[in-house]
Design a protein around this nucleic acid. Structure first.
Lengths: 83, 83
DNA sequence: GAGCTTTATGCGCTAAATCGCATATTATAA
DNA sequence: TTATAATATGCGATTTAGCGCATAAAGCTC
């Protein structure tokens, strides 16, 4: 199941959920990704404009990855919600 | 059809292919994304560590989007290639 | 409540992305 | 080849992510 990631906040939320699902602290994720706890905090909360390589390190540490796809308007939404 | 994007170079290549498919120059994409032609060039060639917001602007301009997914080792590969 | 862990925030610093402009290099077309 | 467009590269200036350290704030457990 892929998760849509159109904004820094959405990406931060996805990262945070994945981290908690694994039972890791920000510090643990930071170490695995080669970053600092403060940086993880900022990225999870969309507080700063992360660098691509930071995100790639975080995703790799969480065993996740980016995919690039054509935009879809109604993805993951009930058809009724369109009307 | 999603495209895997694990490295800055892969992302740059995907962006470049999408841009050319639309018949746009780097300058045209840059304007739509609120960036400069030089920046597009650097990102397409993986020459710099782009900012997340720059990538999101570029993807939006191309009508693309990020998705985050669990890593899969053999995606898009023939099963025979594993042996 | 106290004590401990985890997360968020602040400040100065360094490194690097992006800007702005120019120009070189490469590709395309005639 | 020549002319033109597109892309890549260089340099100084500005902006900002991430570092390092400290600490405040929030959660959690007892």
């Amino acid at each position: 199941m892929s998760e849509l990631a159109r904004t820094p906040n959405q990406i931060g939320t996805i990262i945070q959920r994945a981290r908690k699902k694994r039972g890791w602290t920000q510090a643990q994720l930071a170490e695995r990704a080669g970053l600092r706890q403060e940086t993880i905090s900022l990225i999870e909360n969309g507080g700063k404009d992360a660098k691509l390589t930071s995100l790639l390190s975080i995703l790799a540490a969480l065993d996740l990855e980016f995919k690039i796809d054509a935009r879809s308007r109604s993805e993951h939404r009930d058809i009724e919600a369109l009307f």
